[in-house]
Amino acid sequence: MSVATQAGPATARSRPAVRRRPSRRRRLIGLAFAAPAIAYLAVFQMFPMLYGLYLSFTSYSPLDRGAPRFVGLGNYAALAGSAEFLQSVGVTVQFVAEVLPFAVGIALGLALLANRRVRGIGLWRAGLFLPRIVPLTAVSLVWLWLYSPDGWFNSLLADAGLRPHTWLLDEDTALHAVAVMRVWKALGGNMVLFLAGLQAIPKTLYEAAALDGAGAWARFRHVTLPGLRPVMVYVITVNIVYLAQSFAEIFILTGGGPLGSTTTTNFLIYQQAFQNNQFGSASAMAFVLFALIFAFSFVAMRGMGRRS
């Protein structure tokens, strides 16, 4: 069923035995086939990037009827000295660092469990996967209640004889609370990716390891983990890219508060652009975020590569 079995990385580079230079006609047809996508991506991906880069060097309020005013590196200089922006970068980094290990680690554990032959496995997998397909808006609303003074978590605390806590109004717990929800939301999707990775590991490797007398842990350490590396790199990168752009859950659960403790950079960009009408400064923030995401993903990929 999975495409992986038909076109895994191993076969992806297969070349025809005889390689002929395609005719001019065929090259043109190729160009025609790709043209809509190229044109679209040029207009709606590449151009906006360049336009955004230009805007980041300007001062521009959409409410004023004038055009963007060039200010050079002014926006970037202002960001370097903006406590608010620096705090948002810290919050973003902390959020990613907090969610990532759990979202990946627990998902891997669940995938190992769900990879076994137990009764009703389809049902368990579907259940674990469910949070992935529910819109973030909807789950955030539920979690807002779970965390509310009369919500489920506080009722559990009360049952344990503990005092209720206003999770989302306390500077010390708000970001953690959002992170817990995000881990929960990410588990299913990551688990499924790991499952696909596990199933792509040849059974013969395990059999060979078992013949060598390897125990369960040794098999996991020397067969499963190395076999999962490509998936692991992908999962970690995708999670970083998504998590570093957290917005909807912040919008709904905390509105960036208290004391800016949950104001992620992406949330601040939205506020700066559409609450404060500063498109230029918001664009500059976006490019800093871009650099941050790029750096994070790069480090993650390099780190994973080195361990091989």
Partner: peptide, 12 residues
């Protein structure tokens, strides 16, 4: 372009 965050292209 797959790694470009939405925020970069949002305003443009």
């Amino acid at each position: 372009t797959t790694m470009v965050p939405v925020a970069v292209t949002l305003i443009p």
